[in-house]
Amino acid sequence: MSPLTSRRGLLFGTAAVSAGALLAGCTSNEPSDGKQAGSAQPAASDTPGKHVTIGFAGPQADHGWLNAINDNAKSRAEKYSDVTLEITEGSNDTATQIGQIETLINKKVDVLVVLPADGKALTQVGLKAMRAGIPVVNLDRVFNTPQAYRCWIGGDNYGMGLNAGHYIGEKLKDKPNARVVELAGLDNLELTRQRTQGFDDALKNYPNIKKVARQAADFTVESGQAKMAQLLQAQPEFDALWNHDDDQGVGALRAIEQAGRDDFLMVGGAGALSAFQAIERDDSVLKATVLYPPTMAASAIDLARALGQGKGIGGLAEFEIPASITLYSAVVDKTNVDTYMPTGFR
């Protein structure tokens, strides 16, 4: 994936196992009168309520993960008879996306869901929406100030690296002088640095393991294949590979197969369907992947609907939805891949 700014937030919940599992559709175990126990305000539920028009603006779907973001938003909105989704044509040009969001503001949508092509560059239009009284759900790539959004929801890049490192560490903890390599994303992205930092911090718990090489790719199949081939040539022996992204992992696996290598284990990142299928088949070095779930877009629609209806999230005592929600980076391997298979993106 190719976000241009960092992602952040407070830890909340677990990765979704279906489009709405994280927030449970903002539903609750509410009494029959619709009120939460001990609350002055009901939580949103699947029962139709006040109609909400949600404007959705995201970048161009030039990556499997971004395409899945759009699909999750659309399918989630279709679930609700009280939601109309005004969706823009995705663009990686910041000026174009700003114009699209301003059009949605002028249409007076009730709530905006925005995955900015560049969080810094789009901060002002987020502020404009908020000042116009339109709550903004900032999806994944964060604006420069929390004044530009009512709620942020996104993934945990540091947690991805941390959980990948611990998974590999537990697999290799009894192997003397274990060696690992890393196929990173784009080094000019903060998210790449966060994933590497999490991985390195996890490995500090395993003194028998040393990271002997790191190569940066750029989240494409072609770069994954080329950079992995370089790693394999430079490192004839190692025990594990942490690959930041399942799309570039497709290319990495091609390079590994072409080199005839099967003497190490590989952990991927994001949660692509192809990775889940390879893990299920168990016929390659890929043994696990760490989630960065695109189901966050479905949860963003749930949050926007709740905001538009002036409701909270079931299961929480607070009247309002949280200001920040970070998804958990679950590790998917052969033991649980069946559970996560429906969430895999193409």
Rank of each mutant, 00 (worst) to 15 (best):
L11Q: 14
E318H: 06
A16V: 09
Q36M: 13
R150Q: 15
S6N: 12
V331A: 00
G58M: 15
E170P: 00
C151K: 00
S81R: 04
A95G: 05
H51S: 13
S39Q: 12
L139K: 02
K35G: 04
K311S: 09
L303A: 03
G251Y: 05
W242P: 05
C26R: 10
F238A: 03
R179W: 00
Y149E: 06
L307A: 07
L22Q: 13
A40H: 15
E280T: 06
L316C: 01
Y80Q: 02
I325A: 05
H51L: 08
A129I: 09
R7E: 15
D82L: 07
L253F: 01
S28M: 04
D82I: 08
Y328W: 11
S324C: 01
G314P: 08
T343Y: 04
L162H: 09
G13C: 09
I256L: 06
Q225W: 00
L203S: 10
T289H: 11
T196C: 04
F199P: 01
V17Y: 13
P176S: 13
F345W: 15
G159P: 10
G64Y: 00
E78Y: 00
G133S: 02
D93Q: 10
V290W: 07
N29C: 01
I54N: 03
Y328C: 05
A278I: 02
S32T: 13
V142M: 08
G133T: 10
N163E: 07
R281E: 14
S81H: 02
G344D: 07
A95L: 07
F12L: 10
S284W: 02
G119C: 09
A288D: 06
H244G: 10
A330T: 13
L85R: 01
N188R: 07
V181W: 01
A213V: 06
I101A: 02
N72A: 08
I134A: 07
M296P: 04
